[in-house]
Design a binder for these strands. Structure first.
Length: 553
DNA sequence: TTGATGAAGTTTTTT
DNA sequence: ACTTCATCAA
């Protein structure tokens, strides 16, 4: 443990003054607003490092981080582990709102009585069924009810955590805010809320307007703002700034403060979506093959109906052999930690030099266990021996990944080596029923399908792992992510319909994912799902949204 | 039966 | 923004 005055940001990073102030804040609750690319995640990771290393969060107290999306919560956890090491990071709990609520329900379930009583083996499904099943939407309200009515639950939560981080706070809903309040209002627990009201894109799901103001009031939180944008090149920042001028004038900068020609913005206009798919696939292929851009640094974003809008693009990418991952279709399995574990291992076993998967496996199997140095060394060499052994068997054709029996065998062997406890610990869902086995079977099936297509294993599994695949996803899914090159597909009034402010925020989120290059596509005509009808592009919204880009081409 | 009119529904996430 | 469905008048 070190003294507060001796702490400096981990890994020799430097933070802008307000980020440093936020990271080192001890007494106040914080309401930290910051635009895209300001380094909110990094600030939280550094703050975790500060709290854990200086003992402001002293053992056995823990830090609770609440995000909205699974991958955001995993990213934050990984960043914290990187900054302060696995031992301290073990006291950093990173959950989604739903996961946090469900943990409360599972732990204090008997508190629920009468109408709301739940059986021990209740399930989560599409319908609320008395005692047997709840829906996603029931989770947070039930957790609120538990914490409200049970002093024991309240105390348990308040005594576990000394600090709470709230990520993407602009998208906090009424029910979620209630949960935060019943758990932590008027307690010594210190809260840090970070977000950007200009990126509020969950209004349709009940995200509260003016949530930062309410929070500042209810929790007497100290407001801070981060000004920098470490993500985007200046040309892109000027376009973002043009949107900020419309959405939140006081937060806008003078364009003169964003000098430089770096960065690239293009508007691609097409007659129809066939041309669009063809040209886009060709551009993507060029970026990867000619410019050497990593496919995973390229994202195609759509506002709505991803399946419909990206169908032709997928066909065109297939035809050109461009690896891509449709985050919609693969979502279920690809977001399962055990699926990633298995696929990472298959990639390492089958391919040469797979740094991403290799490192993730090491983190899980060796470093993530809080072992001391000697045992860590042993675990590492044991793991390396095992990997080499499987590689050798594959090379000698004693085992064949394309063979389902061999594949099953290798998977079960892997899970034994990793350890049942470690696998179950990957997700809170795995402890119950046969859910884990189902996911393992589904992954094996899927891997078998991919591997028996005849391509080499690394390419075949590439679309699953996503390490070397172009990402196709909704703007909502892209929140919090960043890419070298971003294509916003279909910048048309037909795709950005709905509440004007909400749509503008969504567009802002989309364009601000790009670090260096932004492409916008517009079609005059686009095919409808039944294949027969076409619509013409209306002009109004197209002019507004594309218009933000035109001065910066 | 046809055409005209208007209202309602559609999308985005979460164990 | 656009589609689908219900209703009403001719």
């Amino acid at each position: 443990m070190i003294r507060v005055e001796h702490w400096s940001p981990a890994d020799g990073l430097s933070l802008e003054p307000n980020a440093l102030a936020a990271a080192k804040e001890i007494d106040s609750n914080l309401a930290l607003t910051a635009g895209p690319g300001a380094g909110k995640t990094e600030m939280l990771a550094q703050r975790a490092d500060f709290l854990l290393r200086t003992g402001a969060c002293r053992y056995p107290k823990r830090i609770l981080a609440i995000s909205f999306k699974v991958d955001a919560s995993q990213n934050l956890k990984a960043r914290v582990r990187k900054r302060c090491g696995p031992e301290l990071a073990a006291r950093f709990d990173s959950h989604t709102f739903h996961a946090f609520a469900k943990r409360i329900i599972d732990r204090f379930r008997p508190v629920l009585t009468g109408q709301d009583a739940l059986d021990p083996d209740y399930s989560v499904g599409p319908n609320r069924i008395q005692r047997r099943s709840i829906t996603f939407n029931d989770m947070v309200p039930l957790a609120v009810q538990i914490v409200e009515s049970s002093q024991i639950a309240r105390n348990a939560i308040r005594q576990t955590y000394s600090h709470v981080f709230l990520d993407e706070f602009q998208d906090c809903t009424n029910a979620q805010y209630e949960l935060i309040k019943v758990c932590f209002q008027d307690t010594p627990v210190r809260l840090t809320a970070v977000g950007d009201t200009k990126q509020r894109i969950m209004g349709w799901a009940g995200a509260l307007e003016g949530i930062f103001e309410s929070f500042a009031e209810d929790f007497d939180a100290h407001p801070l703002n981060l000004y920098q944008n470490f993500r985007s090149e200046p040309r892109l920042r000027r376009m973002q700034n043009a949107m900020v001028r419309v959405m939140d004038l006081p937060a806008a900068l003078d364009d003169a403060d964003l000098p430089g020609d770096e960065g690239e913005i293009e508007i691609l206009r097409f007659d129809d979506d066939d041309d669009e798919a063809e040209a886009l696939a060709e551009s993507v292929r060029g970026w990867i093959d000619d410019e050497g851009v990593n496919p995973s640094e390229i994202a195609v974003l759509v506002s709505k109906q991803q399946n419909l809008y990206c169908q032709k693009l997928r066909v065109a990418l297939d035809a050109k052999g461009v690896p891509y991952r449709d985050e919609d279709a693969t979502q279920n399995l690809a977001s399962e930690p055990v699926a990633n574990l298995i696929v990472d291992f298959l990639l390492v076993a089958a391919g040469h030099r797979q740094p991403g998967p290799f490192q993730r496996l090491l983190d899980l199997v060796v470093f993530g266990r809080g072992l001391d140095q000697e045992n860590e060394y042993r675990a590492r060499s044991r793991w390396n021996r095992y990997v080499e052994n499987v590689k050798k068997r594959l090379a000698a054709e004693e085992a064949d990944l394309a063979d389902l029996v061999d594949l099953r065998c290798i998977v079960s062997e892997l899970l034994d080596i990793v350890g049942r406890d470690a696998v179950v610990g990957l997700s809170s869902e795995y402890a119950r029923g046969d859910y884990l086995q189902q996911q393992i079977d589904a992954t094996t099936e899927r891997a078998h399908t991919l591997l028996s297509e005849g391509e080499d294993p690394v390419t075949a599994l590439g679309s699953f792992s996503g390490d070397r695949a172009v990402k196709i996803m909704s703007i909502h899914k892209s929140k919090g992510l960043e890419f070298d090159t971003v294509v916003v597909l279909g910048v048309e009034s037909q795709t950005f319909w709905g509440d004007q402010d909400a749509e503008r925020s969504a567009y802002f989120v989309g364009i601000s994912r790009a670090k260096r290059r932004l492409y916008l596509t517009v079609c005059e005509e686009r095919e409808q799902p039944d294949g027969a009808r076409y619509w013409k592009v209306a002009r109004t919204e197209q002019d507004e949204f594309v218009g933000y880009a035109t001065p910066y081409l």
